[in-house]
Design a protein around this nucleic acid. Structure first.
Lengths: 339, 339
DNA sequence: AAACGTACCGAAACCCTTTTCGCGCACGCT
DNA sequence: AGCGTGCGCGAAAAGGGTTTCGGTACGTTT
């Protein structure tokens, strides 16, 4: 238990003293301000380096009025959606000199309030709130004295700024791709109906079908976001006997289940039936046989955009409202043979 | 572009003024110190509430000398391993009044140095460094003036504090479980040989086999951490003809591939062959047919332990050294029929 | 009535850095 | 020699909160 007394933090005063100048001069020397002799500056910089001086950002912040930090309040830290968003945001901020304070509220309003207090106490310059579902979430309201950007889940208040995935568009893109590959009889096996993401994707898919003057094969089958559901639903679909040449799946996991069952039944993909998923989740898409075509929701872009809009809000140059991020089609073997 | 002039932050001075007391009294009133009349206290608290006063933690920190924040420096933000660690740590800290500053160095030493400077500038009280592989990583050295805990990847310096997954033990546990279910001819299909995790698990498995007086079926087959590799290796294993009744797989993804190929070849799991994976990654284990028995490396526990050790180090009551977290067996259908 | 105690309150110092402003000094010019 | 000029540096204030210490007012004791 050698309590090796950690060296007291070295302060600007120490540097100044050792360099034989005042703190004011030391400060100017280190910050590249003029009004300081080049020779003096060298001496100060030298001492600072030798002492391992690091300016206390806290003290700078208190004076500047801005802390150079933002809060990242997530509700779904174990989900795989919030992670890329987090990455994108951290990336966008890290490039500047903004640091990220991470909090996980675990979908609990009490915890959220608690974290909010702490973050405000730390004088964050802004806040990004990451939802756990795509469904709109209650706004933190106007009581928060810093700009807020909601992402993944939009705020239910119009005047707030939100960045969301465009699930409706994603649904359309999926169907349009299937149509482009010559499919005409398209079934839809989705996920949990209580998720707006499931319903939105279905709506987009339906719209694209209607625009092409086609009828869907059966109605959308909702269930859960699991492979088991994908297998079960695909089995039922086959047993019902209505012919189909493509299946839009609510997520990559569901698609994976569908693929497995089709394979079991000896149905060739993509020759007999094309399959497409959502999320472009690499472990699912690359492990599948054949590899899975999917719609990437661009979570990382969402994170970056959230950060960018937060910056804009800090400058006072951000129009509130919901911004959708365009999804991206990633073609693989489950829809196109050569891919 | 309604630049709604955000309300200037309300300070203790404002509260004091409005309550008709000095800042000192206001401070004492709000912090529950004695030496303040109960009636005065009520008045101050009341005003503070009405003004939405939040004490400036930065100012408190500058005085206290400790910031109440810790750095979480990860190198693998997109990996699924660091995330639960992060959660565990955030959880352990969030319970107290410590906030987490998140940085992603993306395995780049330059970026790491940069982030380190920033974090030290922000006067973090401690630092957790999350590696991207389980292989030892270069120590940040003694230059860092705050306690550091390395996790996932241990530091290569003995005097540092590290928290790691016990991959050797995990390998042994896997084999012991297979032996307990009556298996005797055990093959091993691993992942990328350049990963210490792969080699450690293999070593543990080999030790457990040897302890039971058994020979492995063939040598460990290294490849990559993918389902495709699992399928390929399982195919080769079958074609070689040496009988086996169990396969230890380097990861859940590899196991999934092995399961798929066995299924293709009409081999029954777990009746003919048992399969076990590592990581207990839910999307893999639950989607597999049958569901996959796996060894949970307890990442979340690692995160929590890292936080706890960091706390201990702050108290000066932490012995340096590497601490292993005990893995946990999770039995499912791929090794036991009834499960 | 004078001395003493006590309970409250407030001025000021402190933490660390930045920034403004003024001072002193050396130099060049008249 | 005297004056103006400009450069280099330092004193001091600011920023928000906590804490120490001194002071005030009131009630109590002798």
């Amino acid at each position: 238990m050698t309590t090796t007394a950690r060296p007291r933090k070295v302060t600007l005063r120490d540097v100044a003293a050792l360099a034989g100048v005042s703190v004011a001069t030391a400060s100017k020397a280190l910050n590249g301000k003029d009004q300081v002799n080049e020779e003096t500056r060298r001496r100060v910089v030298d001492v600072a380096e030798r002492l391992g001086f690091t300016p206390n950002t806290l003290a700078q912040s208190i004076l500047a009025g801005t802390s150079g930090t933002v809060g990242l309040l997530t509700n779904d830290l174990d989900g795989r959606f919030s992670l890329p968003i987090l990455m994108g945001a951290e990336d966008a901020f890290g490039a500047g000199q903004t640091s990220v304070l991470l909090c996980d509220a675990r979908d609990d309003a009490i915890r959220e309030q608690y974290h909010l207090r702490v973050l405000l106490g730390r004088r964050i310059d802004g806040l990004i709130v990451v939802g756990s579902k795509t469904d709109p979430r209650p706004s933190l309201g106007q009581k928060v004295p810093v700009p807020v950007v909601y992402t993944y889940a939009p705020s239910d208040h119009d005047a707030d700024a939100s960045v969301v995935a465009d699930n409706v568009r994603a649904g359309s893109i999926a169907v349009e791709h299937l149509l482009a590959t010559g499919r005409r009889r398209i079934a839809h096996i989705s996920g949990d109906v209580t998720y707006a993401a499931a319903r939105d994707r279905a709506a987009g898919a339906a719209a694209a079908l209607a625009a092409a003057g086609l009828e869907p094969v059966g109605r959308v089958r909702y269930g859960s976001w699991s492979e088991a559901w994908g297998r079960a639903a695909a089995g039922v679909l086959l047993d019902e006997g209505a012919p189909f040449d493509a299946v839009v799946c609510g997520s990559d996991q569901v698609a994976r289940g569908v693929l497995d069952l089709l394979r079991d039944r000896g149905i060739r993909v993509p020759d007999d039936v094309a399959v497409i998923g959502f999320d472009n989740w690499e472990p699912m898409t690359s492990g599948a046989r054949p590899t899975l075509t999917s719609i990437d929701m661009q979570f990382e872009t969402m994170g970056r955009r959230s950060a960018e809009r937060l910056f804009a809000a800090l400058d006072g140059t951000d129009a509130p409202g919901v911004e959708s991020v365009e999804p991206r089609l990633v073609v693989r073997g489950s829809t196109v043979a050569s891919a």
